[in-house]
Write a protein that binds this DNA or RNA. Structure first.
Lengths: 199, 199, 199, 199
DNA sequence: AATGAATGAGCTTTCATTCAT
DNA sequence: CATGAATGAAAGCTCATTCAT
């Protein structure tokens, strides 16, 4: 920890503190303490509390995205990619649960610049998911009638299940949870016969 | 508006202000102004900002639940119930978008009592969903292998799609969105043939 | 209690509440409740909190003075008068202890009008005491070299002993306490022989 | 003034403001202004208004006690000690009149912790006085039949005379006042002949 | 005359931000 | 660069006072 450069130390401290206490209850002084730097030093690297929050969010989100996307790209088939996506998401949530809050929760500030950034970042993720689903549909690997909505549904399901994983003490069986979630997302809740019947 | 009793006026103002600005950025004075009452009057009816928030959340959540559950119970078949659920949720989000935030977003406060209440309320909703799915499975209307997880997935998908509906200006076609979401939830994303292949 | 007229009920309630909680911690609402009248009613009889305090002080002080002076006047000799004075003071403190605070304590308010009144009233008492001592000296009953100062000393001693009586649970033996105090005031602390030696 | 460290400046400002206006009418902002520091700075050094008040009281009381006790201990005989005590008390009251209020007045706060502290401090002083009188009695320097009560009487007389000294503009002749007070305390008000008669 | 719901001025306290060292 | 003492704007809450009923 103390062998990292100050900027990173502050960033990591910010992740912990913001995640634990939320934006408004986090105090710059606490973050400085956690980072083992002076309070003024925080302002050497970040213009304001808001900027620190955004920087920390970017940092965290990038780590999350890199972790997930890399795992996805390492797989060849659509099925495997989806499996990797879900599993990595849940894995990540369990391991660095704090970030989950940031990725999934919204904190609104007066001028809305934070809010805007979070929404943007989510939107990017969503677009990526949409493209992924569209491609899979084109290849015939999935049947996605309305990619934008399907992307939302997948993100939502994954997000909430991720939160549950994060909150539970018993987070032992992430792999199984991932598999079950995948089953729901892939096959739905309808009984098989219904499929033919449907419209 | 001004024909309502003061307590309700404050409650409604609180819904608007809290939803627009979040817990910490909402000022009691603003809420009082919005309700067209004096600042002190707020404290005649609610002990503290926190109590007002909880009261407002309860009030909103109850309205939401009543609206949704009543629609669900009015239907006979599982299919129809599910359709009603999704449609009502989205409808509600579009119409009284502010509440969506409260139902879907988490705000952490110092002592955690608010947070706890919100989590509790969510949990109740989740349990209801679980029971609904379990029953439907028992009746053979749905095929739900792991109700707790399925409930989470459905809630998550619905929640996020609801948020999207809420944020979009073009919220014209809620019915269609509902139908599409339902299709994803019921039949999943897998191509029909995959089902037999699975496992 | 409830058979008294409202003004008196408020006054008596004010005595209790002000004495128990001090000027600033006493709330008009509490006084109203204690008096079993509406909050607004207090303002029918007294212009403001400050005026109520002054009125209540006057009322209490008058009761105190009447009680004490009457007892003093009932006696014939200086000795007996002094004895009555001290005993009545302590008696009064024990029985209606709350008033003691008001008579002995000062609470300063911004504009100082309260303060001024209290000082005035004390001053009157002091002047009375001075005159009493001067007269006694003239009659040869006491030997008071400097009446103004002696008056202060007597009042001070009596006041503080009164407060002690008021604070102690064991206030059983007021008569004895009075006698002891009187002995100190009359004969001083010097050993008898010293008197001749002095100066 | 401005050459003192901030903590002391705040403490001294607090003495002045609290003494002039009482606890409740004193505003932290005023104290900050008087100390020529920012409002927030007060809270850097003292947790709350109440803590500031207690700290200031301790500070003042210690100065008072040191001043008086040192003078007392410097003297050899009981007579001289008593003289020093009375004179110093009055001297102190005249010079730093504000403190007198704190030492002699009681201010009640809601939770009573302040009150308790003040009572404690007074009690300590009282006990000291009691011991002093008891010892003097043992040595045959004074004749104190009931030390606890005599202590109260002395403290009361001294306190009230001190207040008078403090309030008077004409405080010229403290030495004379002290001597007169001492005379009353030592020899009492009774005419010499009465002593033999007594009991 | 009596009431109590309504009010808002005013106060304590917090904490992001600055800046002299 | 690094620091933390100093700052003051901002917000929650209290309660004396008013006034419509």
């Amino acid at each position: 920890m103390s062998d990292l450069d100050k900027r990173t130390r502050i960033l990591l401290a910010a992740v912990r503190i913001f995640a634990r206490q939320g934006y408004h209850n986090a105090k710059i002084e606490e973050i400085a303490q956690e980072a083992e730097v002076g309070k003024g030093t925080v302002y050497e690297y970040f213009t304001s509390k808001q900027h620190l929050f955004v920087a920390m969010s970017k940092y965290s989100f990038d780590r999350y995205r890199d972790f997930v996307l890399q795992a996805v790209e390492a797989e060849a088939t659509t099925q495997a990619k989806l499996t990797a996506l879900v599993r990595c998401h849940l894995e990540f949530m369990r391991e660095t649960s704090q970030l989950g809050c940031i990725i999934h929760r919204e904190e609104v500030d007066t001028d809305g610049s934070l809010h805007k950034w979070i929404l943007q970042e989510r939107h990017k993720m969503l677009v990526w998911m949409e493209d992924f689903l569209r491609e899979a549909d084109a290849k015939g690997d999935l049947r996605v009638e309305h990619p934008p909505l399907a992307a939302l549904a997948v993100m939502g399901a994954m997000g909430v299940v991720g939160m549950a994983v994060m909150h539970k003490e018993d987070t032992s069986n992430v792999a199984e949870t991932a598999e079950r979630l995948l089953a729901v997302l892939l096959h739905g809740l309808a009984v098989p016969e219904n499929r033919e019947v449907k419209k």
